[in-house]
């Protein structure tokens, strides 16, 4: 087993333990569970960062030539963004989702690589092009931000429902305040949306240089990217321009994540990296 695989395995374990600790803390509200969850999250981020770095050294190119690698990168970005949310807003209630998602992404990636994904070295030359690297990095980071914006929307809707219906009020104080999750969700989209725009633009620049299979303009992934971009643009317009109530914009974020994951996973002839 290579060094990067060992570190990745350890980070998976930390993701799982972190998700379980923070999930248990939601129910039991024990300070030590919260501390353990946060520690596992930091450890996972460090180990996973080490695994990705070591992988770069091992294969001598950026670590997203295979589906497993790009899933791993997405998992890492989700964890980093979650740690940022923790530092800014103490949003540990989003931890079970964020760390659980990271664990699942790495697990799925491990399954895909086990099933025989394409060897990374043959893409080294392609990845030397800045536009491609930027295209992938920006898009993956944007999807990571959208995933966490989804968790904020889910927390908002749950808290909103409890406060309106007055059922399960014991849960109210276990969840973050409405205003906090609403602001957090907005900030994540405000980060993710320009990144997605950058990803699409760099993809278009690369496509303009030629060399892509014919019909890339009508490729499923290309079209879906524009749909996702439109959904989040609609969210921003609804929130900033139309003064929609947060409970309505939260549903846009829920739909947005479903489309983002589809964007990530949909097969595409023009996007070899996600095969």
């Amino acid at each position: 087993m290579s060094g990067s695989a060992t570190l990745l395995g350890l980070s998976m374990l930390c993701y799982l333990l972190g998700a379980v600790s923070l999930g248990a803390n939601l129910f039991l509200r024990r300070p030590w569970l919260l501390a353990a969850g946060r520690t596992f999250a930091v450890l996972a981020a460090l180990l996973h960062g080490g695994a990705i770095g070591l992988r770069c050294v091992e294969v001598r190119h950026a670590p997203f030539t295979t589906p497993a690698e790009s899933l791993s990168l997405l998992a890492w970005i989700v964890c980093l963004l979650y740690l940022g949310m923790e530092a800014l807003w103490r949003l540990s209630a989003a931890g079970p989702f964020a760390l659980g998602l990271s664990f699942l992404l790495v697990l799925i990636g491990a399954g895909l690589s086990g099933a025989g994904g394409p060897p990374g070295s043959q893409y080294a030359e392609l990845l030397a092009e800045r536009a491609i690297s930027l295209h992938i990095l920006a898009t993956v980071a944007a999807i990571g931000a959208f995933a966490l914006a989804f968790s904020c929307a889910a927390l908002y809707l749950t808290q909103h429902h409890i406060l309106k219906s007055k059922n399960g009020l014991a849960w109210v104080k276990r969840l973050p305040p409405l205003a906090t999750v609403e602001s957090a969700g907005f900030l994540l989209v405000a980060i993710g949306f320009p990144l997605l725009t950058l990803g699409i633009l760099s993809g278009l620049v690369r496509a303009g240089e030629g060399g892509l299979p014919p019909g890339w303009q009508t490729d499923g992934k290309t079209l879906l990217a524009f749909v996702v971009w439109g959904v989040y643009a609609a969210y921003l317009v609804a929130r900033l321009g139309l003064n929609w109530p947060p409970v309505r914009t939260a549903y846009i974020l829920i739909a947005g994540l479903a489309l983002s994951l589809l964007l990530f996973l949909v097969p595409s002839a023009a996007h070899q990296f996600a095969r």
Partner: peptide
């Protein structure tokens, strides 16, 4: 406490 859960 409820006010803090709503407004932060």
């Amino acid at each position: 406490q409820l006010a803090e859960n709503i407004h932060g």
